[in-house]
Design a protein around this nucleic acid. Structure first.
Lengths: 346, 346
DNA sequence: GATTAGCACTCCCCCATGGAGACTGCCAAT
DNA sequence: ATTGGCAGTCTCCATGGGGGAGTGCTAATC
């Protein structure tokens, strides 16, 4: 990392102009273009001197000797931290988002899928949405269904109408009637607790040979192990959007990214590393630990359910993206998602 | 469509050699290569004459004047119908498939996801798997969970531990206790029936104002509407595999295909049009009604659950694919899937 | 009549060449 | 500090020719 170089006002304006122009056109920006479009009061020669300085301090780079300048990762970073002007989502986009969510199904899974779809559509990038952590969710309802004499299907309804299922085997045969009685009892006891709370209470009680107790243990276990598996689930949508970006005409880059997306596990760990110091976090190019994302940026925020942060939502796209617009739209979709999810709160 | 031209033995062998060589190398096949690798007894001039005939009858084509020959869709069709030799999956592939299914979750959804994953992996193409039709599935268990006084979550457990949920609104407030009683009653009555049977029985009874009856109607409705939505669900995996095929270096083709895959609905209707006259159906290039699949082939078969066909499984890839191998592997994965699903039968 | 050798021809692919254009860096003048 | 001017550098693109692969045709051969 280079030491932070303070930029004077004019250099900032030039950096800003380069990023703005480049993110729109995709063409390296030359001194003449800058003079004509953004700095009529200055000559191109003056701008050339400034550009040379900005290259020297690592904010800009030249693809080759006689080309214009493009931002470095550092340049993008400075831009999003200090220069980017807040943009508001256009009414058209707002309408699209609103309409899409009106037709969303009434379950957390369905809403998150919809969110991924809408976000991909309005940002023209790949969207990412992490599923909420299950073990923190309150249990609404438990049901036990007999499959075979010694085999039981546990159904958990969590807040948000999230349904989790798990098959467990019992030590001895148990009838559906017995299971139904147990389920009724469990429902009175566990309602409104989280799996974590339940696990803690179980630990207090110590070992017990009661069959009912066994089942509760299995229930808790099923939630926590399910969690471990499900943690890695990251919804995504809009891969087709990437193909429109010229940076992906090279199929090799696309391949790395696709592998990352189809694997899921690695992606989940990347998203978990992001610390949300601001409401919208931006990770640019090589700031990513993963090599497949060297030339990509992430724009991420969180969504809430019942006033608690439950997951991450955002997009992944080429470093050369219209950050202001993408930030506005990610924020918009996140808010809309949180609103729709609010009902599923308690 | 050209009139069927009978091919003599030697023309068949040459066509077979062209398809075999081209599917492996991806390079148009010339008369010299054929003479050297497949027909040592013949001169290249003789083969040239035969090749010219095969072009005339529409089985082969030339990309340009001085290039070798490549198969037309018609050539591929003749190959898969009459010339293709049955191939067996290699032990290595069998082992992979077996191992993957051993770690599959115990639910239909999970198994089908796993099947899609494995199939994509072993065929190095994009896999497609349709979810089973819900309305034909027997109902194992019904549960009613009160969300708000007038809002109920209906949970259906179908055979195969398939869980379907739907939120419905009631005309008047109903307590969880009442709902539980209704659920118990419903369970006794509907158990083992399919949604279709239930709908038929409901129709016989005629209108009724009973609240319980209302709920049953909603349940049936939820299954059938769910069906209409879910019908369109086609799992897929392995898009990254496509990038390795040279026919997709042109991103535009990839884009059409991706759009098809991400939409789902259109894909589902394509799969439904396929009539399974043989155990494995192959659809080649322009035989596809969809324009996005003009240069793709489908290799499809069905999978079973409790000895009944429940869905389609197969791959989509470039017309230039190793059909013999792909057919063998699709068949293998289909069988493995059916075996794992067999338990969920009754 | 089928097969084959020989040959002229066609067309793609690759690469080298060179001019146009874009932009820079530097220098001297303001 | 800013600017005009200018030589220099590099990409991009169009052009053109050589090499190579493969063909179709014809005449000779089995």
């Amino acid at each position: 990392m280079l030491e932070p170089t303070p930029l004077d006002e004019r250099k900032q304006q030039i950096l800003k102009a380069v990023v703005s122009d480049y993110t729109v056109t995709g063409i390296p920006v030359g001194s003449q273009v800058l003079a004509a479009k953004y700095f009529i009061a200055l000559s191109s020669a003056t701008i050339r001197n400034e550009l040379a300085d900005l290259v020297g301090t690592g904010y800009l780079q030249q693809p080759h000797t006689s080309a214009g300048r493009i931002p470095t990762d550092r340049g993008y970073r400075y831009f999003v931290d200090f220069l980017m002007e807040p943009e508001a989502a256009t009414p058209g986009v707002r309408r699209t988002v609103r309409q899409e969510f009106e037709t969303a199904p009434r379950s957390v899974d369905g809403i998150l899928e919809k969110a991924a779809m809408v976000l991909a559509q309005v940002t023209e990038n790949v969207s990412l949405v992490t599923a909420p952590e299950i073990s923190e969710q309150r249990i609404k309802h438990i049901d036990l269904v007999s499959l075979e004499p010694q085999s039981v299907l546990i159904i958990l309804v969590l807040e948000g109408n999230l349904i989790k299922q798990q098959v467990v085997h019992l030590d001895r045969a148990t009838s559906q009637d017995d299971l139904s009685r147990m389920a009724a009892m469990l429902n009175r006891k566990v309602k409104g607790q989280t799996a974590e709370e339940l696990a803690a209470r179980l630990a207090e009680l110590g070992p017990d040979r009661d069959e009912q107790r066994r089942i509760i243990e299995r229930v808790v276990e099923s939630i926590t192990t399910h969690q471990a598996q499900r943690q890695t689930v990251v919804l995504h949508d809009g891969v087709r959007n990437l193909l429109r970006h010229p940076e992906f005409v090279e199929v090799s880059r696309l391949e790395e990214l696709l592998e990352l997306l189809e694997q899921g596990a690695q992606l989940a760990s990347i998203l978990q590393q992001v610390a949300f110091e601001k409401d919208v976090e931006i990770v640019i190019g090589r700031e990513n630990t993963s090599s497949g994302l060297r030339e990509c940026s992430l724009v991420l925020t969180t969504y809430k359910m019942a006033d608690r942060v439950r997951g991450t939502i955002g997009v992944i796209g080429p470093t050369r993206m219209h950050y202001g617009q993408v930030v506005a739209r990610v924020r918009l979709v996140s808010q809309a998602t949180s609103e729709v999810l609010a009902h599923f709160g308690n």
